[in-house]
Amino acid sequence: MTGAHAKLPKARHPVSFFVPCLVDAFHPGVAAGVVTVFKRLGIPLDCPPGQTCCGQPAYNSGYRRQARRAAQHFVRVFENADAVVCPSGSCVQMVRHHYRLLFADSPSWLARSRRLAERTFELSEYLVDILGVKALGARCTLRLTYLDSCHLLYGLGISRQPRQLIDHVRGTVRVEMRDSQRCCGFGGAFAVRYPEISSAMLADKLDNIAATGAEAVVGCDIGCLMHIAGMARRRGLALHVLHIAQLLAARGRGDLIHG
């Protein structure tokens, strides 16, 4: 444990863990990484079992009525939490910026969602800006590059915090890729509906990652990461695609990379 941990008060209100639906269904390991990180910080993590999805998939396709129903469920599940932490910039943007448009016509839901929005944080934002922690005692010998996810960067203005967290992981060498701020072409249904445009954007992203010579790409949004992994695997590239929570939980290279 490094000095930063000693300063942390031990007893805290529990933090509620908002598990993005893609993490829940495809990458439980990312959620496990978040749990490890909070355990090390000595902060109890409460994981409401009734949670499902924030409603973004429907909202981004224009189905506001259906998105509202999902959002109401989300608000009911989380509204009593002191703080909600989520390892996804995209989901946090939905809660923080889009709920108020979604509930514009309903004052009571607007008020409830506003209160919740104020207490909902993206993981790296919560660690660096709220807790003031950068060093989490993680170790991993790895040359890596950081991927800026659009909703995190443009929607929430978060780009410094994840880089600081990565730089405090012992053993890592971080190299910046060209055009990190450029979209990888995921965009949810966009990747399925406009595969040619989306793939062309993704191919640029993979080229920029490859040009850094990094063994791994680390990001904060599992959607973008699955998109990148999808083409990397299809092309047979030896690129490791990691969520920042996995990296922050690692106690050695073996925790992340096998074979």
Partner: peptide, 20 residues
């Protein structure tokens, strides 16, 4: 459209929240 140029990771055996 997704698999025209990309693979997709399969769903995990158990969702994280089921374990909770």
């Amino acid at each position: 459209g997704w698999t025209s140029s990309r693979d997709l990771e399969p769903l995990a055996r158990r969702p994280f929240l089921r374990r909770c």
